[in-house]
Computed example of a mutant assay.
Amino acid sequence: MAMSRDPASRTEQEHEPDGAAPAPTGDAAYVLARLGRSWTWLLGSAVVTLVPGVLVLVWPEATLHVLAVLIGLHLLVAGAFRFVAVFAREGHERLPGLLLAVLYVLTGVLCLRNPLQTITALSLIVGVVWLVSGVLTLYTALAAQDLPHRGVVLGTAVLAIVAGIVVLALPAESARALTRLLGLWLVLLGLAEVVVAFAWRAALRRTHSTGPRTPVPAA
């Protein structure tokens, strides 16, 4: 995930510990924006990536059916996290995040609807998702103004791009090999997202101590 700053000064807002401004009661968009600005939401997204990676690594004998279900559930939940994060951004920054959320949900549904697919098909699905995710995150990181910890976000984007290329260029010949490959990359991506989450928390704390401008996360 990437992070950008809201260009508008918010001197009249009271900031909460997680960096989100109070939301008007009953306004779903503001509630989602408030949640998406929280560093703990980013950490939750990282855990959603890290946990499936650990599961598939410690369960190398998992069948292709089980692997497809795990990947499908991961993509669905990750898509939900990214959809909420869209509301925390400005209008012109929402499109990449929205596209990414839709991609995650659609591919997650595809994995769950047809879990008995071939190894090649599953590798193709995951590789494309990671590649597109990395490219969109890279674009957001480069286009966002006043981006805190830009290097961390760029590193995460590059890691996702490399993961996608590796999975696409080196298709596994067996379910066991594919499990190890996907598990390894999920763990690496999850750890990278954990770093981004804690970097985001540091940026929020600096914002609280130096001024009223509120940084806004972007996927």
Rank of each mutant, 00 (worst) to 15 (best):
R205E: 12
W59D: 04
L42E: 10
A8S: 06
V54H: 07
V195I: 12
V167G: 08
F87S: 08
H92G: 01
A177Y: 06
T210Q: 15
G151F: 05
E173I: 02
S9Q: 08
Q117H: 10
T49W: 12
L42Q: 04
V162M: 09
E173S: 08
T207C: 10
R176W: 15
A177M: 13
V216F: 12
A144D: 10
E16K: 13
I161H: 00
W185V: 05
A88P: 01
L32M: 05
W130P: 00
V167M: 10
I125C: 00
V66F: 09
A219I: 07
T118C: 06
F81W: 13
E12M: 06
A144P: 01
V84W: 12
A141I: 03
V77K: 09
V109F: 15
L178Q: 14
A88M: 00
L67R: 07
L138H: 11
E61Y: 04
V109D: 09
G72S: 08
G183S: 07
L42D: 02
A62E: 03
L32P: 00
V153A: 14
L67I: 03
V102C: 07
P215C: 14
T107P: 01
D27W: 08
E61F: 03
G19E: 00
A203Q: 11
L70F: 09
L98F: 14
D18W: 08
